[in-house]
Simulated scan of single mutants.
Amino acid sequence: MVVGLFVVRRHELTDESWAVIEPFLAPPRMGRPVRDRRQVVNGILWKLSTGAAWRDLPERYGPWKTVYERFRRWSADGTWDRLL
């Protein structure tokens, strides 16, 4: 599906969905540049919907370990609970 200038893949968020979810995510921290949060969420959604191993995450979502660590952090700090 094409939304704006972006092709939205099957397991990825539309602009409208991202607008709803983004306020629930912690703002980027100071210091090292952080991976794009939408890209990370899309990677998490891909992993959860496919059931694949974290290490099999497609490169377009960034390093699998980064996506996994963000998933773990957001699980521990209640971010997923607030989203759901």
Rank of each mutant, 00 (worst) to 15 (best):
M1I: 07
V2S: 08
G4Q: 07
G4L: 10
G4K: 10
V7R: 14
V8G: 01
H11Y: 08
E12I: 02
L13N: 09
D15C: 01
D15W: 07
W18A: 02
A19E: 14
A19P: 02
L25Y: 04
A26H: 10
A26K: 13
P28L: 13
P28Q: 14
M30W: 05
M30Q: 00
G31D: 06
G31E: 08
P33G: 02
V34Y: 00
V34H: 04
V34I: 01
Q39R: 14
Q39Y: 00
V40D: 11
V40H: 06
V41K: 07
N42C: 13
N42E: 14
I44E: 14
K47C: 06
L48S: 04
L48R: 09
S49H: 14
T50P: 01
W54V: 11
R55W: 03
R55K: 15
D56T: 09
D56N: 14
P58N: 12
R60P: 03
T66R: 00
T66P: 00
V67L: 03
Y68N: 07
E69T: 05
F71W: 09
F71G: 02
R73P: 03
S75Y: 13
A76S: 11
A76L: 11
G78V: 07
R82T: 12
L83Q: 11
L83E: 12
L84Q: 12
L84K: 11
